[in-house]
Amino acid sequence: HNLTITQGKLFFHYNPKLCLSEIHKMEEVSGTKGRQERNDIALKTNGDQASCENELLKFSYIRTSFDKILLRWEPYWPPDFRDLLGFMLFYKEAPYQNVTEFDGQDACGSNSWTVVDIDPPLRSNDPKSQNHPGWLMRGLKPWTQYAIFVKTLVTFSDERRTYGAKSDIIYVQTDATNPSVPLDPISVSNSSSQIILKWKPPSDPNGNITHYLVFWERQAEDSELFELDYCLKGLKLPSRTWSPPFESEDSQKHNQSEYEDSAGECCSCPKTDSQILKELEESSFRKTFEDYLHNVVFVPRKTSSGTGAEDPRPSRKRRSLGDVGNVTVAVPTVAAFPNTSSTSVPTSPEEHRPFEKVVNKESLVISGLRHFTGYRIELQACNQDTPEERCSVAAYVSARTMPEAKADDIVGPVTHEIFENNVVHLMWQEPKEPNGLIVLYEVSYRRYGDEELHLCVSRKHFALERGCRLRGLSPGNYSVRIRATSLAGNGSWTEPTYFYVTDYLDVPSNIA
């Protein structure tokens, strides 16, 4: 807008934040220059609390790290170098490059900038070799853009010569660093050979998330399962459950009422301010606690030095998902009996873990797994792929695949051998790939016309006998059925096997 004052003059007093240069501009645009008398524009009460600059400061050096910015700028000295009290560095987070010096300023003089007072450097006698002032900004957020400017702080001049310097606002972004852990990993099994893994992005990506790394490792069953005799009275049979499938998407929606109208769909109840505040506090606490764990609990591995020492970490090797089922080394339970199943799973520490690289999504279907087997899954978020990966501390989750139908069934015939004193040795093959492992066998036998009897055969007993022995049988026709019990439950009964026990007292003698 054009402003013209045809008559009258300007009068400025007691404006401590208004620089004289701005008042002189007002004289020019209003056409009143030359009308004012000496005392109409006070030299001592206008701009006496402001830094009124008329020179431009330029930054000469900028260096960044993930949490620091090192700045240096060209030296500046007023005509009387004693008038320079120091520099004021202003900075704040700036997602967009549209910041002005006066953003967030209120009537009390406060604003949204963080201000650092910096002492002037030592003055050199040689004007050509003056030290460049600077400042190291610490405690910054990774991968965050900051708006920065600097200006001088000078003393009051009796001659009211307006001098000083100020830089333009520059924008500097800190470097990326390792992201925080992925949030809320959930693993479920939808079949006997697959596990579905879902997660949420890290709360602090500290860069642009480029991919996720998912490692999985087959877990050995508890050692007590191999040692305890679950045929003993009072000892509860062990059981394991597989990871249940995901709930429906509708039930997972946030901010939804727990109660549904019987007449149909209901609208979600909005969260109160107290609920939102509580969630923010919980989120802040979780982030602080995660940072504490990362800094205190997890110790970084030592990389190899120039002395030739090897990095103890196993090298990563990509495998196809079809090879995942046989990740671990199978060892027989008892070496003397080769027909026992290889369900003991000690994992070799030198073995390469299978892994998958996930790009542009937060889910993965891990296939080719062994049925009813526990897996430990390790999830890392990465925001750099080359020249070397920059990934987060791992988040861990466990899951067990679903049982395989008929995996616990005894394959092959049940054979028998009759000894003296009416002892019958029953023999059968253990299931080759049971659900988890076989903890015991149930032997059901009966003599024709009598009630059915049951015998429990422990895992250890089966390994020693290759089956079991029935003792003290009365003469007669017998039928026997056997079924295995694994961590997933009972298998199917075998087809009945028949044998006849004679009275050993009636056996004919070869003595003449």
Rank of each mutant, 00 (worst) to 15 (best):
R218W: 04
E249I: 06
V296S: 12
S486P: 00
Q252S: 13
D273G: 06
Y375A: 01
E282D: 15
C456W: 00
A309M: 07
L379D: 00
G322P: 13
E378V: 11
T288D: 12
S283F: 14
G374Q: 13
G436L: 10
S248F: 15
Y212V: 11
V457S: 02
Y441P: 00
V296N: 13
N421Q: 08
H211I: 03
T241D: 06
L364R: 09
G207A: 02
R240T: 13
F462H: 13
L440N: 14
L369K: 01
F246H: 13
G234V: 11
L321H: 07
P434H: 04
T485F: 05
N339A: 09
K317D: 13
E388V: 10
S398Y: 14
R319V: 08
P508I: 04
T307Y: 12
G322H: 06
T485V: 03
K278G: 08
S304V: 10
P314Q: 04
S274K: 07
E452P: 15
S268A: 15
A381D: 00
H416I: 07
N422Y: 09
T307G: 13
E217R: 13
P434F: 06
Y259S: 12
K317T: 09
T485S: 11
S509F: 11
S203Y: 05
S243F: 08
A484P: 12
V296A: 13
I482R: 00
H371M: 01
P431I: 00
A309F: 06
G436D: 13
S262K: 05
C391V: 02
F355H: 12
A381M: 02
C266N: 12
G264Q: 02
F499Q: 00
S248W: 06
G306H: 14
I482N: 00
K361M: 08
E310H: 11
K432H: 14
V365Q: 13
E224W: 09
S223P: 15
R240H: 07
G412Q: 11
D409F: 11
Q252T: 11
K271D: 07
L232R: 14
P338W: 11
K432D: 13
E452D: 12
L321G: 06
I366M: 11
K317V: 10
T272Y: 12
V414E: 01
E389K: 15
C468W: 11
T288C: 09
A220T: 14
E430L: 03
P434N: 03
Y478F: 05
V411I: 06
L237C: 14
H211A: 07
Y498P: 04
F372S: 07
K460N: 15
F499V: 12
L232F: 13
R400T: 05
R390L: 11
D503R: 12
L455N: 04
V359F: 06
T373A: 05
Q384L: 05
S492P: 06
N490R: 15
L379W: 03
G308D: 08
E388I: 11
R240C: 14
G234N: 07
V457F: 06
G476F: 00
A263M: 11
R240M: 13
G436S: 02
E433M: 06
P431G: 04
M427N: 01
I276C: 03
V443M: 05
I438C: 04
V457K: 05
R471T: 09
S398E: 04
R447Q: 14
H254M: 08
V397P: 07
S315H: 10
Q252V: 10
